[in-house]
Design a protein around this nucleic acid. Structure first.
Lengths: 255, 255
DNA sequence: TCCGATCTGGTCAAAACTGAACACATTTGT
DNA sequence: ACAAATGTGTTCAGTTTTGACCAGATCGGA
């Protein structure tokens, strides 16, 4: 990962991918925000006034059930943003969103992004492509939660966070992990013990240190790698080689 | 349901919501297609040349894993379409898509929809709003698979299909259900037995008849109602759309 | 009408996960 | 330095789920 991740901690890949004209219009509206670990950025059902672009931070999207339990369905790092659907259309978040890793983050008023989305095909492509990739992350999570063991899922989760934590110890208790993974604490403790005994991680009282990343990747299910690959790739043009389709050329409408 | 579902079987709510000018341009390109139950409309990773708009049919989106197992992450009836992300941007489907209920369906070439998406804000709003709702369905499924019992999930699934099957018996074997739900056949058989003994369903050899719909709703988890509500609402303007969680629901049957 | 394929339900044994409770260790705040 | 709060590992006793396998029922095609 080091290779691809050298970008400094004050950039967001989605913002950086904007065409210069859009970026120039958006830039003046960007404001750095800083949230503490665990803070709720937005409640489920809440109205959104800004979209959030993590630079070093990581956000987590949760689905909240009637009984108050909540489970992670996706997370967002500096490859993406929270609130794009709101910016594209809805203004309302179906999810609770919380800060899972502290770090740099900027926000941008919804209306500014709406205007760009309306006027720039390039921006639309970016937002839509990111949204599709986010959808695929959630879909992978459906499969993962149903078909993979707690241990595999935990590895996957640790790897995702490790990619973004710059070698820091991950600040999570077993209890917290159990909520994210939708399992119970006992299962997490067992998986954690097993990983620690295998020399892959070391932890104590809410700090998890990744010791053997390669090892973790081996124990993890495939879901980690698949999702990572998609997020690494989503900015590239889609299936360009297809014959006969020139989507770049705006054909006149029905004339 | 009867109220909202009386629309005839040759309409698709998403198509019907298009503004007249768009609809007029799109209509000449629509072609009815008819697929048999269980047919794969598109493989995971496949290139899409059309979007599909079910009228009476139901499509299922599956995430396929390396070992060949596949699990349902969402389904699409006549409130929506398959291939909209392709139409908006990507042309490639991350999912396998298969026919889960036979019925009317029309398709439309991607390029036609792309043009509309590019030129009409109204069309963009429709497609984006639907996509967001689809995302929320998948997110609900993440929570459901992780936190609800096989019996609850099966009720939810049967209800979703029953809404669309016009009173027909549902043509599914336990084995098939087990794949959709990501559990094993035995668990499905147990849940099915329990539901049958409670007088909620009756089945034999791949035909499941819903006997007591209300009862099923009581036993189902909340996920059914939440997702249904969102799909019923997504065409309304965002200010009024339903965002959050609804009232309490179901206890498990004791068996 | 019979054969073969399919579907369901049952057994059995094992594994995985759950839930509550509690002791101990470590950290934090005073 | 001490008390309180927090995190982890364990126990025990449950339930749920899994996987393999087979018997009987039923259906459809030859």
């Amino acid at each position: 990962m080091p290779k691809a991740e050298v970008a400094d901690l004050t950039s967001n890949r989605l913002l950086d991918a904007l065409e210069p004209a859009s970026r120039k219009r958006i830039d003046p509206h960007l404001r750095p925000v800083s949230f503490k670990l665990g803070v709720t950025v937005c409640e489920a059902g809440g109205l959104l006034r800004h979209a959030y672009f993590p630079q070093g931070a990581v956000l987590s999207l949760l689905t909240v059930l009637e009984d108050g339990s909540a489970i992670e369905t996706a997370n967002i790092g500096r490859e993406g943003a929270f609130g794009l659907f709101a910016a594209m259309y809805s203004r309302v978040s179906f999810n609770r969103c919380l800060v899972q890793l502290e770090g740099g983050m900027v926000r941008c008023p919804i209306e500014v992004l709406q205007t760009e989305f309306r006027n720039s095909e390039h921006v639309r492509d970016l937002f839509v492509s990111y949204s599709e990739t986010l959808l695929s992350q959630v879909q992978q999570t459906v499969a993962c939660n149903a078909l993979h063991s707690t241990e595999e899922r935990m590895c996957r989760w640790l790897l995702m966070m490790h990619d973004r934590a710059e070698g820091e110890a991950l600040p999570y208790t077993h209890e917290f992990l159990s909520h994210m993974l939708g399992t119970n604490r006992k299962s997490v403790t067992l998986a954690a013990l097993s990983l620690q005994r295998a020399g892959l991680i070391r932890y104590s009282r809410g700090k998890i240190q990744i010791v053997d990343r390669r090892g973790l990747e081996r124990v993890s299910c495939e879901c980690y790698a698949i999702v990572k690959k998609r997020f690494d790739a989503f900015l590239k043009p889609p299936a360009t080689a297809v014959a006969g389709n020139s989507r770049r050329r705006g054909k006149p409408l029905s004339s």
